[in-house]
Nucleic acid binder design. Structure first.
Lengths: 319, 319
DNA sequence: ATAGTTCTTTGACTTTAGTCAAAGGTTCTG
DNA sequence: CAGAACCTTTGACTAAAGTCAAAGAACTAT
């Protein structure tokens, strides 16, 4: 089947319609945005800051979020604050008995901040109050509407997160890449026991003209990865496609696949293979949905018991 | 069919499950809330305040929102600001040439604020930039995901608005009630020409032991109303159920009906009637969905051509 | 007409938020 | 081991945000 070139007028009409949709979507997004930040966000800030400057309250929440201690350095990056400003706020919280500040055991330059028991109590109380406020707000709706609302919010959050995640090509030996691969290895070890870090492909295989390695970032954190290497001329293999547990069910693996496939096409590969395990049912469904079909074993691994391949269309230039 | 009294243990289990659901919904709500205000809200504030204090920028937006002039008094209520603070900010915007401040024609105490042409230009530019930022954010998603996201947001906004609307019983002669009825009359006049304000029921009919009048409020604004009067012993009539155009499709009319029906039951009425017009197809569908069934004409109005009634169950005490 | 209310303005603050640069330890790198 | 790079603290600021109370002008109800 061949695609006919489209008449100019029709194409223009289509594009205009696409822009129209886009404009309407942008407007809907911003409508929500304004409504939500004004109504809910403002309210939240108001209550969050009860008895404490908003900045300090936010800092306290960020410290609590980390569960274990966080360095001032990390907090600075996450909250985007000035070093001096942060230093003073942390001290204020320490003076209030909410946090404990200590020196990092391995690096004496770093200060670690963690909640004191009193801080935990305070946070718990704040959370309780916020829960009550939220529940109050929800009582204006019946059960079905509540369900609908929370589902819509979950959907929106999922897609907003996905939209904010970027996938970047990095060297297979880069710290972020290694961190992902180690997490991936730990995952497999926990699941299959027999997996060891030596089963990972080397950085040199997933770089240069015959391979590639991608890392997905969410707000600066590496939350997923995937590698491509060449098995034989024209045939590539996907390795170590992994997504951080906290970033699953967003559709991120699919995005990683898209990048890997594009890289493969750019390298002149027209066939991609991969192996996976029966226990990863979702992964298998995802591969199938993305056009991969099951094939007999092309390689042997301790954990692999399903093999897939996909024929790639000829490379298309980046729009 | 008779409802069996539920065994105590089962009831408790049910209640616990309900609370469980509720807790999960509250948690989902708050998760979204935190994510959204942190990611989008903060970003928005950052850009909103470019070249101008955030407070002034917000004020400018609020003035623009009103389209026609707004009084400082209203702005104060909407933004929750101190009178002195607001007075100064308004002056600052005036000095920048963004707004014009004048005295209210009917009340010399009030100051009216409205955008100057320069203010309109400025706002337009700000909006354009915000649109670009939003579009950028959306490019991280494919067309289907974008649609899904904007639909989820529209749903969430609709339900949040509905949750925030309160319905209150007020005197039929109260200013808010009159304002709603006038808007209602204007609606009908625009549609049918022949409707006049004298076709409205009098305040005395929708009050006391034989009637009731309800007004729906959204953030302090009256956005809907509905009246109940007694036609004959045991038979009531719903009159002037109306929802502000900007608050339609939220499910508000249904809420008004619930209040009216409860009031009717409390007054010992067991049959409710109402009339409506064929052109109000949505209203008719809503009445049907709420258990009203079509009956022959029980009264004659210039605009009425459909009549409904509903038999009420015996009064149940407020939970 | 008069007393009480309402709305805005003004002056005189305080607190919060945020910036900048110098300086003092620490750690990394060649 | 010397110098560069890092991380935090401190001092010295500025700008924005917000509060309070007094006072004046305008309206409303009696």
């Amino acid at each position: 089947m061949q695609t006919e070139p489209m008449p100019a007028e029709q194409m223009q009409a289509e594009q205009m319609r696409a822009e129209q949709v886009q404009a309407e979507q942008v407007a809907a997004f911003r409508r929500f945005n304004r409504y939500f930040t004004r109504r809910i966000g403002a309210l939240d800030d108001h209550y969050l800051g009860q008895g404490r400057p908003l900045g300090e309250a936010r800092l306290l929440f960020e410290v609590a979020d980390a569960e274990t201690g966080v360095s001032l350095r990390t907090l600075r990056a996450r909250l985007g604050l000035d070093a001096g400003y942060l230093s003073r706020m942390a001290k204020a919280l320490e003076a209030q008995g909410m946090v404990r500040i200590s020196v990092h055991p391995d690096d004496n330059r770093l200060r670690m901040v963690e909640l004191t028991p009193a801080g935990h109590v305070e946070l718990k109380e704040q959370n309780r109050r916020a829960d009550v406020r939220t529940a109050d707000l929800l009582t204006g709706l019946d059960g079905r509407q509540r369900t609908e609302l929370t589902e819509a919010m979950a959907t929106a959050r999922r897609l907003l997160r996905l939209a904010a995640i970027t996938v970047e090509r990095v060297d297979g030996a880069a710290p972020d890449a290694r961190a992902c691969l180690e997490a991936y290895a730990a995952d497999l070890t926990a699941r299959f026991g027999s997996f060891t870090a030596s089963d990972l492909v080397g950085p040199e295989e997933v770089s240069g003209a015959t391979g590639a390695f991608f890392v997905a970032y969410e707000e600066g954190r590496a939350v997923g990865c995937g590698g491509l290497r060449t098995l034989e001329p024209g045939v590539g293999e996907l390795k170590h496609v992994w997504v951080h547990p906290g970033a699953r069910r967003l559709g991120l693996a699919r995005r990683l696949l898209e990048h890997l496939e594009r890289a493969a096409a750019e390298r002149g590969l027209n066939l991609l293979r991969l192996d996976t395990n029966a226990s990863l049912t979702e992964a298998r469904a995802m591969y199938r949905a993305c056009g991969y079909r099951e094939i007999p074993a092309y390689v042997d691994h301790v954990y692999a018991d399903h093999w897939f391949e996909k024929r790639l269309p000829p490379a298309t230039p980046l729009r």
